[in-house]
Design a binder for these strands. Structure first.
Length: 365
DNA sequence: TATATACCTGG
DNA sequence: CAGGTATAT
């Protein structure tokens, strides 16, 4: 029997949020390369780590379903206090027969209170992670009326949504992404977590770990260990960035960039080794609330030239800082303050693994 | 300000 | 060559 939760089997352990497929498509949103931590563990079931817990998510037409694992030894925290598990409470309630009735009632109540607090917190964590307060359908409408090409692609690729990721995970994952492809980045991030992250729980022989802390990444042994794990020259970038943050910038520095204006935050990130314009924009867009940040890689550059006849950098071999900025400005002019979100839709639509979605269904031929 | 080149590793 | 960055010219 599968330890990964299946919605068809254990419905009572699942909670839900109303959410349509045009507001969120899990397969596209979790598989388009903005995060490297989610795997499809069952048909339409996505399992990953978020907010220090292990989750499985699935959805149907109008509902997002989620299951949170509360594994033994890692019960999660409530206001810094350990969650009281049903198992723990039962264990302490075996003293005398007479008191059992009362005690059980008290405990049931306590468990209720505790778990409803916990439920609320988990729901909030999920809403925050998927930024559900942002009405994606409305944005698609705006982008579509401003842009014919988006109108076409957006109709096929609905529900591609920016995540609000943890800045530490986002930064160090994207330092791994330079001159690299998704499948290898996924493997690297997985090894990073498995070796240096706090273990959370084990499901069907898969161990889930939290993303390592900056403190852990700043340890002097890290560069060599990562090199041994096949990180190549990125091992040094990771360690040096972590070390710079711990020794000079301070552990809160990254989080404070959430309330710093976009260009200022991007420049700040670029002072870290291994962080250029592209990586800085990814971190800005995907974890620092900068919806206008447009990460321009060679792929997005192609899209600008091919689908928008964008003249920026035409005839140039490499993406200079100047051309990079021009392409971002070009898209911001079309799409406005959520340009980064729009860019991710087109980026997603261009990925090889999603090309099959572009095939017209037989019924429409 | 703008190219060229090296950098790790694996598909 | 791949969803770049740092360095030297």
């Amino acid at each position: 029997m599968s330890q990964h939760a299946l919605h068809s089997v254990g419905k009572n352990t699942w909670r839900s949020l109303p959410c349509s497929l045009s507001e969120l498509r899990l397969d596209l949103t979790l598989g388009c390369g903005q995060t490297f931590r989610w795997r499809e563990t069952g048909e339409g079931h996505w399992t990953g780590v978020m907010g220090g817990r292990v989750w499985t998510l699935t959805q149907n037409e109008d509902t997002l379903w989620y299951h949170v694992y509360h594994c033994h030894g890692n019960p999660g925290l409530i206001n810094g206090r350990k969650r009281k598990t049903a198992a723990g409470l039962k264990g302490s309630g075996k003293k005398s027969k007479e008191t059992i009735a009362v005690k059980e009632e008290e405990k049931a109540e306590m468990l209720d209170t505790v778990s409803s607090e916990e439920d609320k917190k988990e729901e909030e964590l999920l809403r925050d992670y998927f930024q559900l307060h942002v009405k994606l359908e409305n944005l698609y409408e705006e982008w579509s009326s401003a842009d014919q090409h988006f109108n076409h692609t957006g109709n096929i690729f609905r529900g591609v949504r920016m995540l609000r990721q943890d800045p530490v995970e986002c930064l160090f994952s994207f330092i791994c992404s330079s001159n690299n492809h998704i499948s290898r980045i996924q493997g690297m991030v997985e090894r990073l977590c498995n070796t240096l992250g706090t273990p959370l729980c084990k499901l069907d022989n898969t161990h889930y770990h939290d993303f390592p802390s900056i403190q852990t990444l700043a340890d002097s042994s890290v560069e060599a260990r990562l090199r041994d794990m096949g990180f190549g020259y990125r091992a040094r970038f990771l360690w040096r960035s972590a070390h710079l943050i711990m020794s000079t910038l301070g552990p809160d520095w990254l989080y404070e960039l959430r309330s710093t204006p976009y260009l200022q935050a991007r420049d700040a990130l670029r002072t870290l080794p291994g962080v250029g314009l592209k990586v800085a924009d990814c971190v800005c867009l995907m974890s620092l609330d900068k919806s206008e940040a447009v990460p321009v890689d060679t792929h997005v550059w192609q899209i600008a030239k091919r689908d928008y006849s964008c003249a920026a950098g035409i005839g140039k071999k490499t993406l200079t800082d100047k051309v990079y900025q021009e392409i971002g400005d070009f898209f911001r002019k079309i799409w406005g303050s959520y340009a980064g979100w729009a860019q991710s839709v087109l980026f997603c639509a261009d990925l090889k693994k999603f090309q099959k979605l572009k095939e017209v269904p037989d019924s429409k031929r």
